[in-house]
Design a protein around this nucleic acid. Structure first.
Lengths: 239, 239
DNA sequence: ACGGCTCACATTGTCAACAATCGACTGTCT
DNA sequence: AGACAGTCGATTGTTGACAATGTGAGCCGT
């Protein structure tokens, strides 16, 4: 730890970063570890162990964990422990139903303002996603798909909406990562996203709406089958 | 402070509360102080002072503040300070547009399941709100109106939606409180909410949708006028 | 007088030790 | 044998002190 801590000189005119704090770095690292699957759902996070691992004290670590709790990735019970959240069938169903609503809202916000930059950005991200799928790189596909959808939210400029998407994205990624590890190749098929982008660039809002609904419904059904199977297996094992 | 801290005896069989921590209590207290207007928007929150005031150390207080930051009530810049957020015209516009979407989504979720309990609960909360308005009790009106709308969200049982509403409610209440202090009597007029509840209990979903849109549009317009005036005044004063 | 620099202060970030609580284990009593 | 109380270890909650950083006041040179 404490690598670039002594940089007294760099007045650095253009960087408005007020000297990064540990908490942010730790939160990012922890989040990555969770979403990457290095820490499995249900696993307990022990503060002292993690603090050692990150080379910091428990103070900053606790704040980072609290941030992840607010993001819905961790769940804490006082004096007992903090665990990585395990998503249920209902949880995933909620995420997908919410996405339908939010994403349609996002397109409502931006519909009249879909300029050239937006169209190019959307196509670029679809191409990136397609490349990842063709390369059968699941981890990259997940990130690429999140960036495709995230681009739509960002384009709205609606800070509250973006904030809400951020609060959902973590859980969605958590689920996708688990699905990916369990099933190998995951959901995103080429044609589905091609159609999605095509509709997003068309002038028929109603068709886009139903495309989004279908898009999510496909993903949702897939997830439900997977999760129901997992829950059934878990139920058959534990009691 | 420090009243019920030493309760060693109370084994308290029926309470499943695992011994309340300070952090939660402080977060509630701080939130109340902010929403109540005891701490004005823009004011800086100094950790040491607040810690003394609450009778705790800076550790728990920092975590409570971080929670309020995640709720969007505070904004922090490292090594410099943490301030109560001041909402702009755009912020309020975003809140209202988001509410339209979320509330329509909420009714979609619950539409087919509007049983007797739901209807009675809705009417009861409308009556409570009406009573507060008739009594010209602004502070109570705000709470009552939040409970009326909150009841709809709760009724969906959609945890993610409720969570999202929670993340918006704080900012909405913050704005309403500021509006209330500046303008005296605030927005909620009787007939507006009567119509809202009437539509919510009817069987015409489309009409409800437009009623919600109008309902919010009225509120939004009102807020914009107020905020634009405030910003204009501020702009005329500071530079 | 004005711009840049130094320095002290206020505030936040971090740390290591201490206290409180929970869960499980164990030993005893019925 | 089974149930219950007490105890022990592990983990989180809390604290006060120390370090790093940003900000503004005051000084100096021009």
């Amino acid at each position: 730890m404490s690598d670039g801590a002594k940089g007294k000189v760099a007045g650095s005119v253009l960087a408005r970063v007020p000297k990064a704090t540990f908490r942010a770095h730790i939160a990012d690292g922890l989040r990555a570890a969770i979403l990457n699957g290095d820490i499995e759902p249900g696993a307990q996070l022990v503060e002292t162990a993690l603090a050692d691992q990150f080379g910091v004290s428990r103070g900053p670590l606790r704040e980072a964990m609290r941030q992840l709790i607010d993001e819905g990735l961790l769940i804490a019970v006082p004096y007992t422990g903090t665990h990585v959240v395990g998503l249920s069938v209902d949880d995933v169903r909620e995420i997908y139903s919410m996405r339908v609503t939010l994403e349609i809202f996002a397109f409502e916000q931006i519909w009249a303002r879909r300029d050239q930059a937006f169209r190019q950005g959307l196509v670029a991200r679809r191409d990136a996603l397609t490349a990842c799928i063709d390369a059968e790189d699941d981890a990259a596909s997940i990130v690429a798909e999140l960036q495709l959808h995230g681009f739509v939210y960002e384009a709205t400029g609606h800070k509250l909406l973006i904030r809400t998407w951020d609060s959902i994205r973590g859980r969605l990624q958590l689920y996708w990562a688990a699905h990916h590890r369990a099933h190998g190749i995951r959901g995103p098929r080429r044609d589905g996203h091609d159609r999605y982008v095509e509709m997003a660039l068309s002038d028929d809002f109603d068709t886009l709406k139903s495309e989004i609904t279908d898009h999510m419904a496909r993903g949702g059904r897939q997830t439900e089958d997977f999760l129901r199977g997992r829950e059934a297996r878990a139920a058959a094992q534990s009691p």
